[in-house]
Design a protein around this nucleic acid. Structure first.
Lengths: 146, 146
DNA sequence: ATTGCAATTGATATTCATTCTCATTATAGC
DNA sequence: GCTATAATGAGAATGAATATCAATTGCAAT
């Protein structure tokens, strides 16, 4: 299995783009954990480590990582977009708790069946599909009852 | 079957809110057509008819209509949220063409099954769920080939 | 190594949907 | 009609995302 770096480099090369220090740091930081992340917290994490990479550069790098099929938009919550790794991860869907922001992933093979059927029926070219559930998680329901 | 107005009035009453002229005009305009709509175009439509209702008022009314179960967020496209009627409409999902913005609805009973299963498994309280497909519609694919 | 040049970056300004503020006005029950 | 409370409009504020542009960097060719 190729490393994320190899994949990203390959993609950049193909597009005549450069593997800069900034892009390297961003990539590394993203794949350091397995968590969902948003731009602002990624910016802060990099800052903590002495990497003063501007928000603009992060905003510019994210679409490249998406194009490389390394990450993807996972879910939107409180006006922020949360991203996730997709490289090496099985397709899944998301539940998000409106109260605490907790994201739970669940497997969901039926979704792919639906997508295939729709594709055949309407002759679409599908770029992405998402099943998202919003509500309250077990913990937040418990707290509410008190 | 109750009219939209009756439902909205009932809801407002319950919450000690008032059925103002503005709210009445907004409700009427929304249910005049069956199309998906966004705030800006709704604002323009009202203006055309001599109803100079401020954007703020529209933005304030939309959540009330959602709470009344009359409309719902359907899909997000180019940083705008598109709403749709739900009162009297069968549950369905959406495909949106990234190129031309065309929205196509499709029936989708499997989704409800998935949702029920997830609900049982994780003890969530589900507030909303959405299956969204993004891609290119038949027409836009044809044009591309030329 | 050096050069040339397109790509990249950071700082900052800008955009644009949405929300907030607050003084003025309207609604609904009495 | 009176009164309490909610609603409105205008414009300011917010905040994520994008655009601008001068200075810098990466890298292929020399």
């Amino acid at each position: 299995m190729e490393t994320e770096t190899e994949i990203f480099k390959k993609y950049l090369n193909k597009k005549n783009l450069k593997f800069t220090h900034e892009r390297q740091s961003i990539l590394k930081e993203i794949f350091l954990t397995h968590n969902h992340f948003d731009i602002e917290s990624l910016y802060e994490r990099l800052k903590t480590k002495g990497k003063n990479i501007s928000r603009a550069t992060i905003y510019r790098t994210i679409p490249l990582l998406i194009e490389s099929n390394l990450i993807n938009k996972a879910i939107r919550y409180k006006d922020r977009i949360y991203y996730e790794h997709i490289y090496g991860h099985k397709s899944h869907s998301h539940f998000i708790c409106i109260n605490c922001g907790k994201i739970i992933e669940f497997e969901n093979d039926e979704k792919d069946k639906i997508i295939k059927r729709i594709k055949r029926k309407y002759n679409f070219k599908i770029v992405e599909s998402k099943l998202i559930i919003r509500g309250y998680c077990k913990n937040c329901l418990k707290k509410e009852k008190k």
